[in-house]
Nucleic acid binder design. Structure first.
Lengths: 151, 151
DNA sequence: AATAAATAGTTAACACTGTAAACTATTTAT
DNA sequence: ATAAATAGTTTACAGTGTTAACTATTTATT
């Protein structure tokens, strides 16, 4: 393989997206590696934004996930002391997810990291390009989800 | 959780990218589910484009992966009869990866599927938006990889 | 009121993925 | 001749995605 051949092949869009997704996560982990959790940061952000009113099932929807995976997420976050499950008194099948003080203390920094990584990733792009990107990504997401529905 | 709350939270860019990457893969698998392989399609495309001249180590570079993972990929593709390993006579540590007839027959369709999924995903976008997207993605990829180097 | 169906969450199982360490065989450098 | 580097393999372990079967509870049906 000659040196130039590496540039001969353009990775397809799907691989690019996966690569960027992994890169984001890796940066996040690194920036937050002084915390005692190394994943599920965004789950915490979501739980915070619905403080006291979100159940595991709803979190599954918000994370494009399923209830089985969410059990693992909440098990992890509660083992680490970031979240507690509280039985919903109205419907005792449900748990309300409640942030601990530890989580509330960590969250400003977590949110700041999300913003910092955006800044890093989008460096050198004009504002018009960034807003165009978010629009385009939404369109692609819709195109893909529509097409997955019809399988 | 009220119905409108679902739209209250914007998933961060990194999650969006991961989601799109997974969606692409899922569409690919579905479109190609009559083949007896359900992954590593792009590895085949790469091997084809370097026909007879690519080693596992080089494939690892091309796939942003590592040699251990590539052993699994090539084990899988050779079990399924798509690839054979042939010892390189110049350097007997290396294997040249060779496509079988079965793989050569499947590849036009595989490549066609990549193109079809692009069409699906990019539907409704203007050509200018598509070329801007690829530029922007490359910039983001560079920003992320640069930043990961410096860890 | 009794029963059936649906929902929230859990557990267990299995295959796949990412990563690191230790290993063999071979080639390159000293 | 020996040491160091490289290509590939094996093993191990943690994490992820997915399915099926399960309990407890609520809602719908008769």
């Amino acid at each position: 393989m000659t040196p130039t051949l590496l540039s001969k092949v353009e990775p397809p869009l799907g691989r690019m997206f996966s690569f960027l997704g992994k890169g984001y996560l890796q940066l996040l982990r690194t920036k937050l590696n002084h915390l005692d959790i190394d994943r599920n940061y965004y789950a915490l952000v979501l739980i915070e934004s619905f403080e006291g009113e979100v159940t595991q099932q709803e979190l599954a929807l918000l994370l494009d996930s399923d209830k089985v995976s969410i059990v693992r997420v909440i098990d992890y976050l509660s083992e680490k002391g970031y979240v507690t499950r509280t039985r919903n008194t109205d419907d005792r099948r449900k748990y309300s997810l409640i942030l601990t003080e530890k989580a509330k203390k960590a969250l400003p920094e977590i949110r700041k990291c999300f913003a910092e990584i955006n800044e890093i990733a989008l460096k050198g792009l004009r504002n018009s390009q960034i807003s165009e990107l978010t629009d385009v990504i939404k369109i692609i997401k819709n195109n893909i989800t529509e097409n997955i529905q019809t399988l």
